[in-house]
Every structure is written in structure tokens, then in C-alpha cells.
Design a binder for these strands. Sequence first.
DNA 1: TCTTGCTCCTCTAGTCACTAGAGAAGTTAG
DNA 2: CTAACTTCTCTAGTGACTAGAGGAGCAAGA
Lengths: 138, 138
Amino acid sequence: MAFPIGELARQTAVKVPTIRYYEQIGLLPAAPRSEGNRRLYGSTEVERLNFIRHARDLGFEIEDIRELLAMAAQPQSSCHQVDSIANNHLAEIERRIASLTALKRELSRMIEECGHGRVCDCRIIEALADHSQCLAEH
Amino acid sequence: MAFPIGELARQTAVKVPTIRYYEQIGLLPAAPRSEGNRRLYGSTEVERLNFIRHARDLGFEIEDIRELLAMAAQPQSSCHQVDSIANNHLAEIERRIASLTALKRELSRMIEECGHGRVCDCRIIEALADHSQCLAEH
DNA sequence: TCTTGCTCCTCTAGTCACTAGAGAAGTTAG
DNA sequence: CTAACTTCTCTAGTGACTAGAGGAGCAAGA
């Protein structure tokens, strides 16, 4: 029934120090201990930690996850807040994609224009040095 | 000719503490000082800091910038390495865009399926809790 | 029983690229 | 001369871990 932290780590693919860290910041409750002072876990913790891991994989911040966990613990309340956190996060992801796409475009252009000669003729270095010119181009 | 750190900050849109930080980590050379111990800058530093800022805006890491600056200082050498740093960075950006796009898709799906009812019926919470199901779907 | 090797414990410090704040000192305008 | 502003140094904080030291528990084999 009860297993140690390494087993929890294996079952959830979350590293042992990360689990301890989550306990420290209160994302996981303090685990009961064995006689030899080892943390003991059960299936509840596996579920909770899987939830956390999946949310982290999706890029949710710890504070978001704290709120999501609190809401999941109140199944009768409205899921409006859950929806709102998820939507905010989606908007943030979209912002990041847009900004990375713009970077990608500029970087690709710089690389294309590089004549692969000497540094003094390199358009990459030039573009980095002279941002005003670059801004003017857009 | 020589102006203080605040003026450099204004000309480059880099914050004063950030400039001091760049000096501390050796990205900018230690500035000469006035009688009253204030840092003094000239147009060389404006150029160098603009280069740094633009590279940072493009998402290059400090260590990349350190290398790029070293190469820019050797105009007669081949720009092969410059090209390689830029290409590595481009690949990294493309990886990030791909991963964010995947997240966006999963998150959008979760949000769409949310019936906006109570938490106990919420597909967002459910999807987070049960990643195995989600993995199986893909 | 002893030893070997693994897991676990706590605690501190490091990562990256800044950012914030304290407290002191120089500088400028009125 | 004074008030407001800028600058100085130094320390500590951010987020989400990660690494390492030094010590203790535990299971299996000789």
C-alpha cells in the first residue's frame, strides 16, 4: 500500500528532488513518515502528482496549478475559474508563439543573407549591430 | 563625449542595473570612472550595448552573445561560426514553436470540451488528472 | 554477522538573466 | 544652501528546479 519516494518518482516520472521540492512549497502535502523517517506515499499522491506533472507539461505555472488543485478539490462549484485560468494560459501561449514566429522570421532572413564569407561582410553581425536599420526595414 | 550610465541607458533602452550587471559578468568592459566614481561611456559602448540588446531581443543567450561579440571583434576571420550559432538558435526557436503549438492544440481542445458547468464535470480538470487517457488519444 | 550497494534524509548553494531595495554619496537646479 | 535627482555598492529575491555534501536506513549476498 505505502511506498517510498523513489517508487512515486518512478510511477509519475517526476524526479525525487522535485517531489521533495513540491512538498517544500506546499504543492504536495507533507508525507507521513516510516519509522526510519522515510516519506510514505499511496495512490492519492500518484494521482495528485500526475495532475501536477501534466499541468507543468502544458506550461502552467506552479501558482496556476495551486489554484487548479484547490478547484479540483471542490467538485460542486462552478468551473468558470478553471476555464478562465486555462484561457489566460492559452492566450499567453499564443503570445509566445507569435513572438517566436517573428523572431524566427528575422533570424531566417539574417541567416539567408549571410554570404558565408568573412566576419567583416557578415550580414548576421551587421544586423545585430545595427538594429535601427533593421527596424526601418519592417 | 563622455556621459554617465543613465544616458547610456536612455540611448540603448537597457536599464541601468542591467548595464551594471553586464559589466559585472564581463559582457561590457569595466567603464572608466569620473572623479566622483561614476561610470563614463562613449559611442563605442552604445554600439556594443545595442548589439547585445538586439541579440537578447532575438532570444540569444548571454554565452552566445559573448561568442558573437568575440567574433565581431575579428572581422577577418570566417563567419562560419557566426552562422553556426545563428542556425543553432534558429533550430531551438523552431523546436520551441513546435512544442508550444502542440500545447496550444491540447489546451484548446480541453477548453472546447469544457461544458462550463460544475468542476465535477469539467473536462479540463479531468484531462489534467488523467494524462494516460490523453496520451492514448494521441 | 558483516559488507556492499542502493535508497533515502537534510541542508546549502547554484542555475539564468535579471530585478528590487537599502543606505550612502555625488551632482545639479533653483 | 537645499531639495531632488542620479549614481554608487552590496545583498537578496525571482521561478522551478538541480547538484552536491555528508550522513543514515535498508536489503541481499558471502
